[in-house]
Lab assay of single mutants.
Amino acid sequence: EPLWIRPDAPSRCTWQLGRPASESPHHHTAPAKSPKILPDILKKIGDTPMVRINKIGKKFGLKCELLAKCEFFNAGGSVKDRISLRMIEDAERDGTLKPGDTIIEPTSGNTGIGLALAAAVRGYRCIIVMPEKMSSEKVDVLRALGAEIVRTPTNARFDSPESHVGVAWRLKNEIPNSHILDQYRNASNPLAHYDTTADEILQQCDGKLDMLVASVGTGGTITGIARKLKEKCPGCRIIGVDPEGSILAEPEELNQTEQTTYEVEGIGYDFIPTVLDRTVVDKWFKSNDEEAFTFARMLIAQEGLLCGGSAGSTVAVAVKAAQELQEGQRCVVILPDSVRNYMTKFLSDRWMLQKGFLKEEDLTEKKPWWWHLRVQELGLSAPLTVLPTITCGHTIEILREKGFDQAPVVDEAGVILGMVTLGNMLSSLLAGKVQPSDQVGKVIYKQFKQIRLTDTLGRLSHILEMDHFALVVHEQIQYHSTGKSSQRQMVFGVVTAIDLLNFVAAQERDQK
């Protein structure tokens, strides 16, 4: 057995438009009618409502009807409940999964919650491996369901041993009777949507819809739904939504950006999952974080739909894509998950301010006199920076000697690579993860907040409520011999709460 199987392995699926269902090699399930009293909570997966979006479509000038398939009504709160249950049931049916076995899954959280929910009911041990950027709410729900959680670096490539995929496979090879159901490759993922989600949409719309818009992560949702719609409703256009920084969209030119990270969760990847059939997507749109969270908040405030950030991405694209539809036509959007997962993220004004998705003037509360002053007023001194090749031991000596707790790590040209902190280095040394002679590049981390000289002290204040420091950066445009230009970030300084307090105190003292 291989040590790991690539999540982007070539698909062996034989589905073709027009091929009889009787030739399918898979076990198919028909939607079942729910009894009045459910035998367990797993029976509350599927049969989610279709809700008309009344205000947002009109606000953006849509002539067509805009409908939302509300997947956050599933038992675990997301569309991923469907595939989690289906993968477990299919693994039980073919004898792969037996009582007492362990389920391991690399996930952005929602599939993990679905699997942990099913594992709690069915009696399996469950280990979820997820990147650090995923919300604390997801972690809390997983723990409450009895799952064990392993976190991995957000910026690790999918084929790196440190990625959530790599760590999951390492655990599988170490733990007896453990299984990775593997949402990236498992046919049960798109089949769950082909058999149930798509049929529900067709039934709820009486077979009449002209466009379907869905955000894409593993691709199982859009693949399964689109294949069924292509068979039953061939005139329906399928629109895929991919965040900026991901590479799922086609044509490839759409993916060209210097951005590699994004805040919206559960969609987009740096590889093409095996289950994603991009041939059934008629057109791709890219979405960005700001519009995703703005539209998610709009869905909550104006439509009462308590959905997550990827739902915002989907609707932001839908109001663009559906401009081509006329009166009497219908566009369906998939709202994948609930706001429950993001209470401390985009639902929080403070978080939105820190990330730059909300401006101070958007909030009406009274601010102190210094709130709208610029960061450049602080008069920061030149920063202490270190090269990635310097040793951890030497870096600790320098920081202690100069009285700093942290320093930016830059390359020879001064471009920011990340940050090192005294606390992080000492804990890594004590844990045996690094040696004093190791290069400081081994303990770089990139989960820090950046701020510009033109940003306000109010925004800085919000950042420092949650973080010990902020890195002050400025952009530099560099022209190359080819005539092309590129933008790079340079370090201007490091600012802490002490710097802000000293500035405010000094100004008030001078005024007296």
Rank of each mutant, 00 (worst) to 15 (best):
V440E: 03
V317M: 14
H372Y: 13
V333W: 01
S428R: 04
W369D: 06
N288C: 15
I444N: 14
E465K: 12
V434F: 14
T260D: 14
I477N: 13
H480F: 14
K345I: 05
V280Q: 09
Q435N: 12
F285Y: 14
N424S: 02
V434G: 10
D282K: 14
S246V: 00
S310I: 00
R278W: 05
P388I: 02
L353W: 06
D289E: 05
A506N: 10
R400C: 15
V332N: 01
L254H: 15
P336R: 07
R340V: 01
D411F: 08
T344H: 06
V472N: 05
E265R: 03
V494D: 02
N341R: 02
M298W: 12
F271G: 02
T344E: 07
S481Y: 09
S348R: 13
F357D: 02
V317N: 08
D289G: 00
A316D: 09
F357L: 12
C331G: 08
Q323K: 13
L457I: 14
S427L: 11
H462Y: 15
I267K: 00
W351E: 01
E258A: 03
V495L: 15
D277G: 10
L353P: 02
S246W: 00
T364F: 11
Y445S: 12
A296W: 00
Q450G: 13
A505I: 08
V443C: 14
E263N: 07
V495E: 04
E365G: 14
V415K: 03
L248P: 01
Q476I: 15
E290H: 11
A407K: 03
G441A: 15
A249C: 01
F295A: 02
Y269L: 01
G245R: 06
G432V: 12
W351S: 00
T257Y: 12
T314F: 02
E401A: 12
A470S: 14
Y342W: 01
A249L: 04
G308A: 02
A382L: 13
E377Q: 13
S348P: 09
I463R: 07
A292Q: 01
L378M: 13
N424C: 08
A318P: 01
H462D: 14
L460P: 05
G458T: 07
C307F: 05
K449A: 15
L500E: 03
W351H: 06
K355N: 12
P336M: 03
R488S: 11
T364K: 11
T344F: 01
K402G: 14
A321S: 04
Q478W: 14
A505R: 02
V491W: 13
F448T: 04
K286Y: 02
W371T: 12
D282T: 08
S338K: 06
V472Q: 14
E360G: 15
L417D: 09
S461L: 15
Y262D: 00
Y445T: 10
Y445G: 03
P436F: 13
G423S: 09
G423R: 10
S246L: 00
S348C: 03
Q256T: 07
G414N: 02
V410E: 14
A431S: 04
I463M: 15
A296L: 02
E412V: 12
S246K: 03
A296R: 00
S486L: 14
G483V: 15
A318W: 00
K367T: 10
L464V: 14
L429A: 02
S246G: 03
L335C: 04
I451C: 01
E377C: 07
R278S: 11
M298S: 01
Q487C: 13
K359N: 15
I444H: 11
I334F: 09
T261E: 11
I239H: 03
E327I: 04
D499A: 05
L335W: 00
S287R: 04
L471E: 05
L380P: 12
F293H: 05
D411V: 09
P408I: 04
C392Q: 08
T456Y: 11
W370E: 05
R459Q: 14
K484V: 15
L426W: 06
V434R: 10
T364G: 11
V415I: 13
Y479W: 02
V443W: 08
M419K: 10
T454F: 10
L373I: 12
S381W: 11
F293K: 00
I272H: 06
E244S: 09
P251V: 08
D455S: 12
T482A: 15
G393C: 15
N288F: 09
E263K: 15
L457S: 01
S486M: 14
V280D: 06
S428H: 02
T389K: 12
G493H: 14
I396R: 05
E253G: 14
Q259S: 04
D349P: 04
Q259K: 13
Q376P: 03
V504E: 11
D349W: 00
K283D: 09
E263W: 08
E397F: 13
E327L: 06
A249V: 02
P273T: 13
N341P: 01
F357S: 01
D289S: 00
Q476M: 09
F503N: 08
K359E: 13
F448K: 07
Q447D: 14
Q478H: 15
Q450I: 14
Q354H: 11
L306F: 09
N341Q: 04
L347R: 00
N502P: 12
N255Q: 06
E291W: 09
V495M: 14
I463P: 11
H474G: 11
I477S: 06
K359R: 15
G309T: 02
S338C: 03
M298F: 04
L500I: 12
K446E: 07
V440M: 14
V319Y: 08
S485E: 15
K484Q: 13
V494Q: 05
E327C: 12
V491R: 02
E465L: 15
P383E: 08
Q447S: 12
A407L: 13
V491C: 15
A470P: 08
V415Q: 12
I247L: 15
G304L: 03
L453R: 15
R488M: 15
T279G: 11
R400H: 14
F285I: 15
Y262P: 05
T260A: 06
L384I: 04
A505D: 11
L417I: 12
L387W: 13
S427M: 03
H474M: 08
E508L: 13
N255D: 03
R374K: 14
K359Q: 15
A470R: 08
T391Q: 02
L305S: 01
G393T: 12
S381G: 14
V317Y: 08
N288W: 13
A311V: 06
K366G: 09
K446Y: 12
M419P: 14
G403W: 12
A292C: 09
T274C: 00
F271T: 00
L384N: 09
V280T: 15
T389Y: 11
Y342C: 00
L399E: 07
I300Y: 05
V386E: 11
G328V: 12
V281E: 07
T454V: 14
P368L: 13
Q376N: 11
R509A: 12
E244V: 10
G266V: 00
E253K: 12
T389A: 02
E397D: 13
E290Y: 13
H372Q: 13
K442Y: 13
L276Q: 02
P436Q: 14
W369R: 03
V317T: 09
I444D: 12
K366W: 09
L430G: 02
M352T: 08
T454P: 13
V420C: 08
T314S: 14
G483W: 13
V339S: 06
Q489T: 12
K484H: 09
P383S: 14
M419H: 09
R452K: 02
G304S: 03
Q478A: 10
L306I: 05
